[in-house]
C-alpha cells in the first residue's frame, strides 16, 4: 500500500503508544490543525533502541526491518521523541550495515533522510514557529540528551514554546545535563540514575515552574516518577501537548489545561 503524496506518517513510538497516548493524540491534532494529512500505520512498533543500547543488536533487527517496511512509502515520518528519532538516524544505518544486507542498508538510508523529530518537522518542513497554541502557565524545558546531541534539534523547541500565547518560560539551570534516565541505565544503575534525576528535579523545583516540558516522554517517565514520589506537584508534559492546546480547547473543556495529571 503506498501512501498518498504529502501524507505525514506518525511514528508514535512504542512507549507513547502504551504509556502516553495523549502525546501522539496531541501530535495528530496539532499537525492536522497545521494542514497536514496524518496517518498512523498500524504495523509500526519500536525504534529498537532498548535492544540496541543494551547490546542486543540481533534482537533490534526485527524493529529496524519493521520500521523500514512500515514507513518507506511515506514522504515524511514524524515522531514526538528526540531519542527514538535519534536512534533511527544514528543506529539503524549502523545495524543495517552490520547485520543487514546492502539492500536493507539503502532502504534505511532513504528513510533516515525523511524521518523528523516533531520540532524539526514543524520548524524546518512546515516553516512555522507560532503554531497558534495557548497555554497560560509557567513552564521550564529540559533539553534531553538525545534531542540535543543525537537528533540535534537545537533551539527549535525553545522557539516553538516562546511563541505560545499565555506561556511564561523559565530557563532551567544546567538544562543540558543528563537527567539520568538513559534507557536500561535507569534499572541497571538505579542508584546513579536516581542521584542524577534528583539533581535535575532540584533544578526544576528551583525554577518555580508549574510544568516541566521535554520532547521525550521516556525522560519524563523518570523525572515524573521522582516528582510523584516526592509529591512535588510539578507536572511533566510533552512539548506536543502544549503546542496542541488552543484557546478554544480551554473553553470547550471548561477547565485548566491539564488533560492528565500524575506520574509520567
Amino acid at each position: 500500500m503506498s501512501a498518498p503524496t504529502g501524507t505525514v506518517a506518525l511514528f508514535a513510538t512504542c512507549i507513547n503508544d502504551l504509556m502516553f497516548p495523549d502525546t501522539p493524540k496531541a501530535v495528530v491534532r496539532l499537525l492536522e490543525r497545521l494542514g497536514c494529512t496524518v496517518d498512523f500505520p498500524l504495523s509500526q512498533t519500536c525504534c529498537g533502541q532498548p535492544f540496541t543500547n543494551t547490546g542486543y543488536f540481533k534482537e533490534a533487527m526485527p524493529s529496524v526491518r519493521n520500521y523500514v517496511e512500515t514507513f518507506e512509502s511515506y514522504e515524511y515520518v514524524v515522531g514526538p521523541s528526540g531519542s527514538c528519532i535519534g536512534s533511527v538516524r544514528d543506529q539503524h544505518p549502523m545495524l543495517a550495515g552490520r547485520l543487514g544486507d546492502p539492500g536493507l542498508q539503502r532502504r534505511v538510508e532513504a528513510i533516515v533522510a525523511k524521518t523528523y523529530d516533531l520540532s524539526e518537522f514543524i520548524v524546518d518542513v512546515l516553516g512555522v514557529t507560532d503554531v497558534g497554541a495557548y497555554f497560560p502557565h509557567t513552564v521550564t524545558y529540559h533539553s534531553t540528551c538525545h534531542s540535543l546531541r543525537v537528533t540535534k534539534v537545537g533551539d527549535r523547541p525553545y522557539r516553538l514554546l516562546k511563541a505560545v500565547r499565555g506561556l511564561t518560560f523559565v530557563e532551567l539551570p544546567d538544562s543540558d545535563q543528563c537527567c539520568g534516565f538513559g534507557g536500561t541505565f535507569s534499572v541497571k544503575n538505579p542508584d546513579t540514575s536516581v542521584a542524577m534525576g534528583t539533581d535535575k528535579v532540584r533544578h526544576v523545583l528551583d525554577t518555580g515552574a508549574e510544568y516541566l516540558v521535554a520532547g521525550d516522554n521516556s525522560c519524563l517517565l523518570h523525572l515524573g516518577g521522582l516528582l510523584s514520589r516526592m509529591e512535588a506537584g510539578v507536572r511533566p508534559i510533552h512539548l506536543a501537548e502544549i503546542l496542541a492546546r488552543t484557546e478554544e480547547d480551554l473553553v470547550e473543556a471548561g477547565t485548566s489545561a491539564n488533560s492528565e495529571g500524575g506520574v509520567r
Binding site: 502504551l18 504509556m19 497516548p21 500524575g262
Partner: peptide, 30 residues
C-alpha cells in the same frame, strides 16, 4: 494512578525504589 515501590528484585525494584511508575494507559494510542 501510579505504581509505587515493588518488592520484586531486579529491574522492577530498581525502578520503583525511589521513583513511582506510571501505569499503562487504559486505552492505547493505536
Amino acid at each position: 494512578s501510579k505504581i509505587g515501590p515493588l518488592p520484586i528484585p531486579g529491574w522492577a525494584a530498581g525502578w520503583t525504589g525511589a521513583r513511582d511508575m506510571k501505569k499503562p494507559a487504559t486505552e492505547t494510542f493505536r
